[in-house]
């Protein structure tokens, strides 16, 4: 089913309310023809994984600027695995120091986009890597 539109969950874990990036990404992905579900602010890992399951998404974009990424993002990955959603492409973006990136990638996050990343780069990355699972 290659003509199916890619479905992306844009999620805001963590307690911060900085949603400028998440909303720009959501709009850019929509403009690029993807179906986007935005969770709203302050979603727990459980809520995010639940939404991913309900919405049958190909990709999850996690935006976090609170500094809690080392605790919250691995938890999301662990829950995805439990739900057998480990074929969903997971991306993250926000204020994330370089030294934290290897561990986040090791737990299954495909790519981390830092401030300055273009929406075009993110769109291309999702097109190239998401939706590979059999439907």
């Amino acid at each position: 089913m290659t003509d199916r539109r890619l479905r992306v969950l844009v999620a805001k874990p963590g307690l911060d309310g900085h949603d400028r990036g998440a909303k720009i990404i959501a709009r850019a992905l929509r403009d690029a023809g993807m179906e986007v579900i935005y969770t709203g602010l302050r979603q727990t890992p459980e809520q995010i994984v639940n939404a991913a399951l309900q919405e049958d998404v190909d990709c999850i974009g996690l935006s976090i600027l609170s500094g809690a990424h080392n605790v919250i993002l691995p938890r999301v990955m662990q829950l995805l695995k439990q739900q057998e959603l480990d074929d969903v492409l997971v991306l993250a973006g926000g204020i994330i120091p370089d030294e934290d990136i290897p561990a986040l990638k090791a737990c299954g996050i495909a790519e981390i986009f830092l401030p300055g990343a273009s929406t075009e780069l993110i769109v291309t990355f999702i097109r190239d890597h998401a939706g590979k699972k059999p439907r």
Partner: peptide
């Protein structure tokens, strides 16, 4: 519980 990972960070 929602403070998990956030204490002293920002």
């Amino acid at each position: 519980p929602l403070s998990e990972g956030e204490v002293g960070k920002c």
